Simulated scan of single mutants.
Amino acid sequence: MDWDPQKYVEFSDYRNVPFFDLTARITGPEPRLVVDLGCGPGNLTATLARRWPGAHVIGLDSSGEMVRQARRARGEPNLEFIEGDIAGWTPPRGLDVLISNAALHWVPGHLAMMRRWLQQLQPGAWLAVQVPDNFDAPSHALMRALADSPRWSARLAGVLRHDNTVGSVLDYLRLLLEEGCEAQAWTTIYEHVLHDQDPVLEWVRGAGLRPVLAALAAEEAREFEAEFARLLRQAYPATPYGTVYSFRRIFAVGCKKGPA
């Protein structure tokens, strides 16, 4: 699946806020090694390098185009970007802070993977994760319903994941506690006021719609988007103030107990 860094950051004013809400909960001594899994175009990873100038900060992403964009805009001397698959990643020795913001929902079985990471992390290390929890929102439910319709089901069968894409907020909290962390977990609903034509379609083009676009030829993708846009206009009517798009997210942060 191809990613478009420019499209992804189109709503960066809104997409960036959960990252800072997540990382604000990380406290304690200055880290020496920090990893950001699913770093995307790297603009948020760069803020970690500025926050912790004495740390080696690594951003990892499976998209070569995202990593190339991140490297072009790197800026900070303590910052490195590498291309790699989260599913095959193992925490390096000496890792102090592990962050994954809006990435793990793309990885099947990520709760079991997180458990392995926690078992490998040293005492005093932090794990901070944020995943979207809006898969039952109209934007995603309508996308799945359209993909399952007679016109598209043969082309899009199995393309969109839904069941077990993410756990509940309690699943993440229990996991952190069971693996010996001081932990906190919470949900936040962000009410985004979007503008311009078909803004919810433009939002999901940056992430959730990518598997559909990757599976269809260009003309088919335009046809699917036109039909999807009509459904979204009904579900998210424009107001004089803009289009309100509710987005629920899950956060989980833990620090592994024991002497650092």
Score class of each variant (00 low, 15 high):
residue 72 R to F: 07
residue 103 A to I: 08
residue 134 N to M: 10
residue 121 L to Y: 07
residue 80 E to T: 15
residue 86 I to C: 06
residue 118 L to Y: 01
residue 92 P to K: 13
residue 119 Q to R: 15
residue 146 L to V: 07
residue 120 Q to D: 13
residue 122 Q to P: 12
residue 151 R to I: 05
residue 136 D to W: 14
residue 86 I to T: 09
residue 104 L to S: 02
residue 136 D to V: 14
residue 145 A to Q: 14
residue 77 P to N: 12
residue 93 R to E: 15
residue 68 R to G: 10
residue 104 L to Y: 05
residue 128 A to L: 00
residue 101 N to H: 15
residue 106 W to T: 07
residue 79 L to T: 01
residue 145 A to V: 11
residue 125 A to T: 07
residue 123 P to R: 09
residue 122 Q to N: 14
residue 150 P to G: 08
residue 136 D to T: 15
residue 110 H to C: 04
residue 95 L to T: 03
residue 89 W to L: 00
residue 122 Q to C: 13
residue 111 L to V: 08
residue 126 W to F: 09
residue 118 L to D: 00
residue 85 D to M: 12
residue 119 Q to S: 14
residue 117 W to I: 06
residue 112 A to H: 08
residue 100 S to I: 01
residue 94 G to K: 13
residue 98 L to A: 01
residue 106 W to L: 10
residue 134 N to Y: 09
residue 88 G to H: 09
residue 149 S to A: 06
residue 140 H to T: 00
residue 104 L to V: 05
residue 87 A to I: 01
residue 133 D to M: 07
residue 71 R to W: 07
residue 76 E to A: 12
residue 146 L to W: 04
residue 147 A to D: 05
residue 111 L to A: 06
residue 72 R to N: 08
residue 89 W to C: 03
residue 108 P to E: 03
residue 137 A to E: 15
residue 98 L to P: 03
residue 124 G to M: 06
residue 112 A to P: 00
residue 69 Q to R: 15
residue 152 W to T: 03
